[in-house]
């Protein structure tokens, strides 16, 4: 059984079938991409996976466990965390604090430990703070540790959002259009960064429009249009697929 297996999920908003019997799977250590025109339902898939929406039908199995009726918290603690299409950082907080929020799900000390500053509090808090600082170093944000999140340039905000997701201890990262709004140089940097994550053993499910990123990184690609899967395959197969080209031409997104 694959690491993440999604079996014929559907969801409807009023009359609109946003996702229609979509199935896909992700093997451990892979980078798998979901592409498709705007409004195809890609972000909705992430919202279902992360527990914001419930699929009307279908099954999701992650790391051998059924995600049905699991709360967002349970899903994160099982090892899946996400980023957002429109970056959603805690802007009024420092870079390191953003990452620390990610570690909270793994922090064991209680309210009263914090109040009375017990030994346990000091040990765990110190450990998590140093972990966060180290993590920021490995993603190349060591100079930004003390800054406030909204002072970072766009590219670094994206990185921080990914670091925050990693801090939860997740091994499967859902990245929603991480290269959106980046210039070619930034998006190339991002590509290297995602590759580095893969080499560190993370599994990545990626939504992306930037074809340089998608085609060079993906092990496997699924194409979504109007909530339906219209194609799947290796990058080369997708490039040669007439239906995919047509879907994109309709949107005018081919570069």
């Amino acid at each position: 059984m694959a690491y993440l297996e999604v079996n014929k999920i559907s969801i409807r908003f009023g009359g609109l079938t946003a996702i229609d019997k979509f199935d896909f799977k992700v093997e451990k250590g892979q980078i798998v991409s979901i592409i498709g025109p705007n409004g195809a339902g890609k972000t909705t898939v992430f919202n279902i996976l992360s527990g914001i929406y419930r699929a009307a039908e279908g099954e999701i199995t992650f790391d051998g466990r059924n995600l049905k009726d699991k709360s967002p918290q349970e899903i994160v603690s099982l090892g899946m965390a996400r980023t957002f299409q429109n970056i959603r950082l805690f802007y009024d907080m420092r870079v390191i604090e953003n990452v620390l929020i990610g570690t909270h799900i793994r922090t064991g000390y209680r309210f009263l430990d914090g109040l009375f500053r017990t030994k346990r509090f000091h040990l765990e808090e110190g450990e998590k703070i140093r972990y966060a600082a180290d993590l920021l170093k490995t993603v190349g944000l060591e100079k930004r540790i003390h800054d406030y999140a909204d002072n970072l340039p766009y590219g670094e905000q994206r990185k921080l959002e990914i670091a925050r997701a990693i801090a939860t201890g997740a091994r499967l990262l859902l990245l929603d259009e991480p290269a959106a709004g980046m210039n070619p140089q930034e998006s190339e940097e991002l590509r290297q960064f995602i590759l580095q994550l893969k080499n560190q053993g993370y599994t990545i499910l990626l939504i992306e429009h930037d074809m340089n990123v998608v085609m060079n990184l993906s092990d496997y690609i699924y194409v979504l249009d109007y909530g339906k899967k219209i194609a799947e395959g290796k990058p080369q197969e997708i490039l040669e697929n007439q239906q995919v080209v047509a879907a994109y031409l309709g949107e005018g997104e081919v570069e």
């Binding site: 992360s50 914001i52 967002p72 918290q73 994160v76 603690s77 965390a81 996400r82 957002f84 959603r88 950082l89 805690f90 802007y91 009024d92 907080m93 604090e97 620390l100 929020i101 990610g102 909270h104 799900i105 922090t107 000390y109 309210f111 430990d113 914090g114 109040l115 009375f116 500053r117 509090f121 808090e125 925050r164 997701a165 939860t168």
Partner: peptide
């Protein structure tokens, strides 16, 4: 004590962006 522990940090995160906080498992 609250301000300097994960409680205070979490409360500020909720103020900043509750959905993002929930998606971090809070």
């Amino acid at each position: 004590g609250i301000q300097n522990s994960n409680m205070g940090r979490t409360l500020r995160a909720i103020k900043a962006d509750e959905l993002a906080a929930v998606m971090m498992g809070i």
